[in-house]
Design a protein around this nucleic acid. Sequence first.
DNA 1: TTTTTGCATCAAGGATCCTTGAAGCGGGGT
DNA 2: ACCCCGCTTCAAGGATCCTTGATGCAAAAA
Lengths: 235, 235
Amino acid sequence: MITERVRTAHVLVVEDDWPIRHLLKVSLSAHDYEVSEAENCKEAISSLAKQVPDLLLLDLGLPDGSGIDLLRRLRQEHATPVIVLSVQGAERTKIEALDLGADDYLTKPFSVDELLARVRAALRRSKSLHAPTLLTCGDLELDLERRHVTLAGHEISLTPNEFSLLMAFMRNQDRVLTHRQLLKEVWGEGYVDDSHVLRVNVCNLRRKLNSPDGKRNYIKTEPGVGYRLCLPRPA
Amino acid sequence: MITERVRTAHVLVVEDDWPIRHLLKVSLSAHDYEVSEAENCKEAISSLAKQVPDLLLLDLGLPDGSGIDLLRRLRQEHATPVIVLSVQGAERTKIEALDLGADDYLTKPFSVDELLARVRAALRRSKSLHAPTLLTCGDLELDLERRHVTLAGHEISLTPNEFSLLMAFMRNQDRVLTHRQLLKEVWGEGYVDDSHVLRVNVCNLRRKLNSPDGKRNYIKTEPGVGYRLCLPRPA
DNA sequence: TTTTTGCATCAAGGATCCTTGAAGCGGGGT
DNA sequence: ACCCCGCTTCAAGGATCCTTGATGCAAAAA
């Protein structure tokens, strides 16, 4: 099941210099992109209000205001990829734009081939977004992306092994996990019989997860079998 | 946008002892589960051939063969959640079943409330599967799940910081990432000006990524700006 | 050419983490 | 009552990793 982009991509070119703007329009149109044009910030803003393009080519040296501000406004609402055009020497502005989330840059003069390659790369990337992976169990939250764990709101710091262990638990809430399963998952095939190292880590994990007053217990021991993560019951 | 299970869940009960099987059927039916029954391995296999249930309740002490073998056969094709029933003392078999991928277990005699809780938990879990997150760039592969990186097939070992750094790169292939962006992403807000630590890590990462003969280069330097990950060109 | 600037690389002190040993605790069985 | 077994907890040696300083290098600027 693949979702393919069928319609042609729409590119908005924001550039005050006519020869360059024309070059961009011709080059992009020749490769089946649909092109809109704006020659200053004002036109760009009204164009964006009408329709948000698939990609923005933005010159940073506009007559009626800084392209940086335009980029900042755009980024507050849209994740549209942006490729920045700049003249040599405007390093400061260029880097500021990239830090603001611009996707790429080209320094004038640039080759059309390079421009087209950058456009393709930016459009390709913008298609692949990833679902935010966040596991929860009670007031425990585990963020796979950032490798952060928060308990009742504030972050707690885990060692790499503790994090993997907790990840295995949270993917299998309320389920018994045998010693071998946990050892295999976190330490690998070679450790399936080393139950001591597992016990030490469960101990350390509990110390960090359970409330200071020891009134909650997320990890339940299944004697002779393994462990199980479940909602803590106020002992 | 939520996908909710509307139809009733289908449970297959595999149990030779009539009183227990009857108890299970009555209890589950009373809670709107659709129940099928099998009193030995043979019946279970033919039932599975007809229709794969949403959950399997499996007694391990069957007259015509080991429930373990049934479980092993099932696991070769389906990820159907399985809750195992066992008598006290059959620890060995029970743990074997769990290691094979059984989801939970109940030791006879068990309370019906506990059974129903375990059934709910197992069905809830089976609904949440996660997309395998695997990023690639040329013959570089990064597995978000297992935190493994392979280069042309064989694994290479990265330190935690190196892994985060490469992850940032692979999520933004062909895109320039400024020093500040990378430092913020990997080290956090407080490090955005410490470009030295970034350079050292990029250096170490390159040493591990590039082929021994130094003929490939994944990470391209953008002088004054930052770095960019792209397909290596045979220098 | 000389100087400067930014990047690459090496090395070491210090911090963190992992493994393993040893001791304490408690329930079940004899 | 005693012992045995599994689980918990503490502690330390050793391994790994991270940061920082020092040095080398190359390209651009003066």
